[in-house]
Amino acid sequence: MSQPLSSLTPGSRAVVAEILIPPQHRARLLEMGLLVGTPIELIRFAPLGDPVEIKVRGYHLSLRRHEAEQVMVR
């Protein structure tokens, strides 16, 4: 059962199941190591609710809710 990354609560871990971001915007995210099958941890949301901070492959990465909604995790 997959859900959007943005619906995780801070501190929870998951694995990327599917990336629904349009192909032309996907490349850099993939190159940053966010691939299908990659384990991630949601660290926090920014004080104003956006963007979101995750930990992926041992480092901290921030992306907007809009993109996080299109990264499905399980």
Binding site: I21, H25, R28, L29, M32, P51, E53, Y59, H60, L61, S62, L63, R64, H66, E67
Partner: peptide, 11 residues
């Protein structure tokens, strides 16, 4: 132009 997604490393 569509804003490129924000991909920001927090070192």
């Amino acid at each position: 132009g569509e804003p490129p997604p924000l991909i920001l490393e927090l070192p």
